[in-house]
Design a protein around this nucleic acid. Sequence first.
DNA 1: TTTACATATGTTTAATTGTTCATATGTATA
DNA 2: TATACATATGAACAATTAAACATATGTAAA
Lengths: 124, 124
Amino acid sequence: MAGENKNKTEMTEQISQAEREEIINQVLEQQPDDEILYDLAELFKVFGDSTRIKILYSMFEHELCVNDIAGLLNLSQSSVSHQLRILKTSKLVKFRREGKSIYYSLDDEHVRSIISMGMEHVEE
Amino acid sequence: MAGENKNKTEMTEQISQAEREEIINQVLEQQPDDEILYDLAELFKVFGDSTRIKILYSMFEHELCVNDIAGLLNLSQSSVSHQLRILKTSKLVKFRREGKSIYYSLDDEHVRSIISMGMEHVEE
DNA sequence: TTTACATATGTTTAATTGTTCATATGTATA
DNA sequence: TATACATATGAACAATTAAACATATGTAAA
């Protein structure tokens, strides 16, 4: 029982044609629907821009308003606002109004987790 | 001691100008170097394409050769090869040769973690 | 209800990038 | 050492997209 779960990826020994086909079938079964993988790619695409990452990271601990972010990161108000719209649409940030200002913050812990995971990989 | 660590992001109460400035300074201090955030964005950019995500996911449990992937995902050999090069360059996959075939697999657990984190967010 | 401040949005442009097609490289076998 | 098979690579093209600029919307204070 214990030995059966060893990761196939690590096995460099020869494998039969039948076993290969079995693996192919397993992969096909386990593969999520294209639609889900498309959404997943779209999610990562949002993290995949240095301006947006800077904005997201600036909100890692505290909420910030648009002008704060623009000032902190030396970006135009327009650029920040455009990017925040994308982050809003992807549900990566939430916001609240306070007077004339609108304060943005990370939407949930998932966002923090994803960034942290990426950081770990980058910092190797 | 315990109360001081409460997450500022969740505080909707009014905050003084001085406190705001203190927060701005904190954010500036905590912000990683642009170079690091650039690399982080580059990493996510690699995950941010549906073809590459499909390829990565197909290798979630097992190593696969180029033709396997092309067949499984109904992609051209050229397209798969091009994308695998990008995945190789980003250290997201590793590979080994076995005769004429080259078997690719996810490089490490980080890759799996990042995909899983993204999946959790998408499946909400 | 003006005026100023804060943010959002529409449009254009330049740059990036995924795919395709053609071809090259590498490996095993007859 | 030809031939076939597996993978990689180069170049061209089409599509996507971030930034800049101008302008619109929303809010508060005079």
